[in-house]
Amino acid sequence: MNLKLFPSDTSVLIQGMTGKEGQRMAQWLIGSGVRVVAGVTPGKGGQEVGGRPIFNTVAEARETISNIYVSCVVVPPSRVLEAVMSALEAGITIVNILTEQVPVYDVIRMREKARECGAIILGPSSVGYLQFPRFRIGYLGGEHPFDQLKEGSLAVLSTSGGMTNEIIMALARHGMGIRFAMALGGDRIIGYTLEDAILFAESEPSVKAVALFMEPGRAILSRLLDGSFVFQKPTVLFLAGAVLDRLPRGIPYGHAGTILNEDDRSVSEVRKGLREKGIRCASTMSEFLELCRNI
């Protein structure tokens, strides 16, 4: 399934809404005008959070309230697989998983199921998605992002949740606006990939340019270097992590997916190779903002 921009009145479900993080997410989303319509926590059906009903199952929520196709999953790692499978079986087509430390095999099973159902999984370890004029899921942007950010025509896509926010806030301070921002998650294997997200941004006419953040070890880097993936719109890429060239290889740093194996190219070689391909590649935040300004 291809992603499209969300209508601002899209109904959102939160799985795990009775938990501490779930309650806060509900409060923040509702506070920024998002239509959170219900929550799901098995065994807690009948309760309420933020004035929204809690159901025992996603299927029950969808039977009672019409037009729910987006769900945010905020449950502990060992329960993510079950929560996502039940959402997909009940007809949810876009699932955002905030939870970190979800086993790789569970993500592979979710992706198998999502392929079957024609659904999209954003995450795991995804802090969310945010789109102007006023729609978001997850925590991306903090409590009141729309007061701080600026609307524009840039799409920000990142494997790091914190850096997505760092970037959109910095862009706003420097007078640059965004159409949407998406935190894809930094795990070894994720649902919606950087490639998917870039194609989505490139297909959306209101997006004029794309700003990417990623760490070493991402599969798309070798595709960019060998020319099998080519940007169709003006794009700036911030590749962090030169420090990995000084640290032991074969183990992850920061995100589970940030690994340089023994025979991988060094970060400085990758940056050089990207620039030789004509790709605007930044090594620092200041360089990145400068490239965005001149795009």
Binding site: S158, T159, S160, G161, G162, M163, E166, G186, F213, E215, A240, G241, A242, V243, L244, R246, Y253, G254, H255, T258, S283, T284, M285
Partner: peptide, 14 residues
């Protein structure tokens, strides 16, 4: 703090 930001920070320090 931050999987990506930790790398950005340490790169900046170096």
């Amino acid at each position: 703090s931050g999987g990506g930001a930790s790398l950005v920070a340490i790169d900046a320090l170096i």
